[in-house]
Nucleic acid binder design. Sequence first.
DNA 1: GCCGTTTTCGGCCCGACTGTTTTCAGTCG
Length: 585
Amino acid sequence: MTNAELAARFHEMAALLELKGLAGFKLRAYQRAAQSIEEHPEPLSEVHRRGGLETVRGIGESFARKIEEILQTGTCRLLEELRAELPPAILQLMRVPGVGPKSAAMIWRELGVSDLDGLEDAAGDGRLAALRGWGSKRAAAVLAGIEGVRRWGGRTPIATALPLAQGLLSVLRGHVGVVAAAYAGSLRRGLETVGDLDLLVSTLRPREVLDAFAAGPFVSEVLALGDTKASVRVRDGFQVDVRAVAPEQYAAALLYFTGSKEHNVRLRELAKSRGLRLNEYGLTCLPGAEDPPGLEAPPLAARSEAELYAALGLEYIPPELREDTGEIEAAAGSRLPELVDPADIRGDLHTHTDWSDGRDPAAVLAGAAAARGLEYLAITDHSRSLAFARGLTSERLASQAEDIDALNRGGGRCRILRGCEVEVLAGGELDLPDEVLRRLDWVVAAVHTPSRRDGPDLTARLVGAARHPLVDVIAHPTGRIIGARQPYELDSEALIAAAAETGTALELNASPHRLDVPPPMARRAVGAGVKIAISTDAHDHRNLGDMEMGVWSARRGWVRREDVLNALSLEQLLEWRRRRLARSR
DNA sequence: GCCGTTTTCGGCCCGACTGTTTTCAGTCG
Ligand SMILES: Nc1nc2c(ncn2[C@H]2C[C@H](O)[C@@H](COP(=O)(O)OP(=O)(O)OP(=O)(O)O)O2)c(=O)[nH]1
Ligand SMILES: [Mg+2]
Ligand SMILES: [Mg+2]
Ligand SMILES: [Zn+2]
């Protein structure tokens, strides 16, 4: 069982317990355990085998027993009891904004309603509004909310969210009262997808700014509008939260609004343990019992996030690391990694031309790469068997190489490497013979075709490719497509081990719908000494700009400049390759 | 239920907005 499946069962137990009225710290314990399981880098089935479940944060004796039971039987007694007691669809009710555990429980208890259709009927015919604590406004909000849940389900890719955020920020900055504005939340942390947009503005006239924003033509629904924050829906039902604070509160507010929630909680606990209080307005001394009421100490160190971290005894933590997955301990011990930066990138090691399924000729791609300041570019068109992508035969690959040689002789500023994205066939062998691959400057191996039931599985195919002496990089290893396809069943530990042993690099595919390897896997890979190639997989010269997204994800994976192959100069890269080939012969 | 440079009990982040609540619970960030 995967950690995600295990975590889903803990989330379900937490939600059902909450519906039954459980609240407070015990509930938080279930929620934190679920989160902790979800983010744990190693499969808990392995941790269990080692007998180390209780070393996982948030897992104690009782949860360890439940995990063991779930790993062995797929479920546990408590979960089965809860499922028997409550209707399965009831958790759907809580997806409607404004309907939490108390309301969902009441709706089920009083109206016998336990799914979205039933809720819609009850809201429409007045039964909902008649409940205690309910009225026509809430019932109407529920109807709108159901509509929203149906129209919108999921999360938005960062590549879609970023331009939307920038557009809305320029709207906010257009207001005379706005001193500064920035995006925060998961977008600032560089997540692959975001649940909403979180925008922060600094202003002396918050009410005016928020009112104007909520009245904007792009707003389809106002969910909340107060003195310090507004929540609205824009087109497609996408939610935007705006928070407005005074200029001197901006740093503390940015820290708060960037999150993550778990990171915030840890910082606030840390502050408290030092006799301080941290909130979105600043860092203050905790009022002591003997202090006169109303005489609050002024906020400390609120000019920048860095000053706030320093006041808590921490190094500055970049937003991409703020997930409470070890960054606070590292910052306390001055052990934070120096993360790779977009300016460190000197080449792109996976691109396609119109010889296979790309749009542009190599010359156009190379010109665009030079304009971006890249020193080198590997052209890696698909191989023979990928017919739908017009994969190259050995012969066409040889003529493409001649083409590239001519371009390089033409003396562009960007050196073109003769490469190939060679398919790892269902039987596990590579799609092109060794003598063809041996003539190339760069070899990327990838799987685009399903595994056969009677053949090697994905892990075996990729591990085999990593062990092949002529393969430099394994491309988009998990095969996930964000928002569309779950990762293939890949034993990532096995692939990382093989890559570490053979010196093969793993790709972080920068295409915004892949971002594969995912950041947690990148973190484990670099921890094992594996090099990462951040590559755009461009099928069009404009895709070369995806590199920044890739670097962003790499930073979330704690990847340093020295872990990144394409942060090397061309000379260093070729030297790295010579050594790898010499070792693996 | 978990956890420990306040260690095995007594804590567990902190605040904004809404509706119908006559004093604040529920929900959300
Ligand atoms: N201290 C504290 N801060 C919170 C809490 N919930 C949210 N925040 C802060 C940190 C979040 O990053 C920020 C924005 O909240 P969101 O719900 O939009 O979450 P976030 O953007 O991280 O993820 P998302 O992609 O929107 O699901 O607000 C909380 O319970 N306590
Ligand atoms: Mg958000
Ligand atoms: Mg938000
Ligand atoms: Zn490709």
